[in-house]
Design a protein around this nucleic acid. Structure first.
Length: 241
DNA sequence: CGGATTTGACCGAG
DNA sequence: CTCGGTCAAATCCG
C-alpha cells in the first residue's frame, strides 16, 4: 500500500496524466486557436511539482517549493468547504482554511474591512475584479477565526458571470465555484482542472465533461485524497493546525 | 501615474 | 440604536 505521501504523489502524477490526456485531445482537435492550453500545461507542471514535493519534503506544504506559480489552488489546503445555503439563486460556500486562498481561480479586489462584534478578528470583503467590466457580482468574505495558528473562514457569495476563472488553473484544491450549476463538488473541482474551456465554450465543456469520466479513472477520490491529507478532521470540522 | 488597498463614513436591516 | 455590508476618498505601491 502507498504511504500517505506516496499516495499524494501518485495522485498528483495521475492527475497530471489526466490533464495531459485532455491537452492531447485538445491539440488533436486543433482547438489551439480558440482554447488556451496554458492552464492545462500549468496544471500538468504543477502536478509534477506537487508530486516531487510530496516525495522530497513530506512534512512541508508542497507549494512552498513550487518553482514558479502560486500553488494555492493545488496544494492540499482544503479543509471544510461547505455549501451553506442557496437563496434566490445565490449559493454560498464556506471554506475554513489554515490559510486564506490567495489564488482561488478568480481575481478579487478588496473593498472593505470590518471588525465584527462577534469575532475578535476583522473581516475582509472582496468582490470580483471584473465586477464592473463584466457585471460580475460575486463576492467573498475572508475572516480570521483563530489567530494561533491562523485559521481563516472564506465565504463565497454571488454568482461569477465573468470569464476570468480558470486562468490560474486550480487542480485539487480548486475553489472554483460555479454557482448556478447543480453538480457535485468533485465534478466542479475536476471541471476546474480542465481550464477555461469549460467556461469559454459550452459545447466544448460538455465534450470535456464527458472526457472527465475517463479522467475519473485516474483521479484519486477527492475525499480519500483530502482525507489522507487531513485524516483528523471531518468535513464538518474547522481545519485547525 | 495608475491601479490596488486601506479605512472612516454612510446606509439599510433588524 | 446596533451591526454588518458597501462606498469612496485617501493612501500606498510598483
Amino acid at each position: 500500500m502507498f504511504s500517505n505521501i506516496d499516495h499524494k504523489a501518485v495522485a498528483a502524477l495521475l492527475h497530471g496524466q489526466g490533464c495531459a490526456n485532455i491537452l492531447k485531445t485538445v491539440l488533436d482537435n486543433c482547438k489551439v486557436s480558440s482554447v488556451s492550453t496554458e492552464p492545462l500545461i500549468n496544471t500538468i507542471l504543477d502536478s509534477f511539482s506537487l508530486a516531487l514535493s510530496s516525495v522530497n519534503s513530506p512534512n512541508r506544504q508542497p507549494h512552498h517549493e513550487s518553482s514558479s506559480r502560486d500553488m494555492a489552488g493545488l496544494v492540499p489546503q482544503r479543509s471544510s468547504k461547505k455549501k451553506i445555503c442557496g437563496v434566490k439563486g445565490l449559493e454560498i460556500y464556506r471554506d475554513d482554511s489554515p490559510n486564506p486562498r490567495l489564488d482561488d481561480g478568480f481575481t478579487w479586489r478588496k473593498y472593505g474591512q470590518k471588525t465584527i462584534k462577534t469575532s475578535l478578528y476583522q473581516r475582509c470583503y472582496y468582490r470580483c475584479a471584473y465586477a464592473k467590466d463584466q457585471n460580475c457580482y460575486a463576492t467573498k468574505r475572508v475572516q480570521m477565526i483563530q489567530d494561533s495558528p491562523p485559521v481563516y473562514r472564506t465565504t463565497y457569495l454571488g454568482q461569477h458571470t465573468c470569464k476570468a476563472f480558470g486562468v490560474h488553473d486550480n487542480t485539487y484544491g480548486s475553489e472554483m465555484i460555479n454557482f448556478d450549476q447543480v453538480v457535485s463538488e468533485s465534478v466542479m473541482r475536476q471541471l476546474a482542472t480542465i481550464g477555461e474551456q469549460a467556461v469559454l465554450m459550452e459545447d466544448e465543456a460538455n465534450h470535456i465533461m464527458n472526457q472527465e469520466y475517463d479522467i475519473n479513472d485516474y483521479l484519486v477520490d477527492d475525499e480519500v485524497f483530502w482525507g489522507n491529507e487531513f485524516p483528523l478532521f471531518s468535513s464538518e470540522d474547522l481545519m485547525l493546525f
